[in-house]
Amino acid sequence: MGQLAYNDTMIEVNDDGFLVNADDWNEDLAGVLAQGEDITLTDEHWKVINFMRQEFAENGKVPSIRRLKKAGGIPIKDIYRLFPDGPAKKAAKIAGLSKPEGCV
């Protein structure tokens, strides 16, 4: 367990830096989480994040990269460009979701 300083409060995160309480998430905090990954959020990032959150809300599952491509229409190349060095995990973390479970 760890903590992330945010607006004079401490947000609980797990050892890998994912939010412990999904309710803590907001768009501003997403920017802070992104900074921790050396990512500055752009509209392109937000398209991925919003789709991930929407998918999770609808299916209760963190979408795979494949799902982002198939259902979200986001090319795999773009996902790797936007969230380099571990896109599935990074995007999920910034979106306030948990690590994706699947193998593909």
């Binding site: 795979s64 494949r66 799902r67 491509k69 090319p75 795999i76 190349k77 790797y80 699947g102 193998c103 593909v104």
Partner: peptide, 18 residues
């Protein structure tokens, strides 16, 4: 069912990952 693509599709996607 568990979203594993066909071999040709998978090869294409793997190339897209870099």
């Amino acid at each position: 069912k568990i979203e594993i693509p066909s071999i040709p599709e998978f090869i294409e996607e793997i190339a897209e990952t870099g």
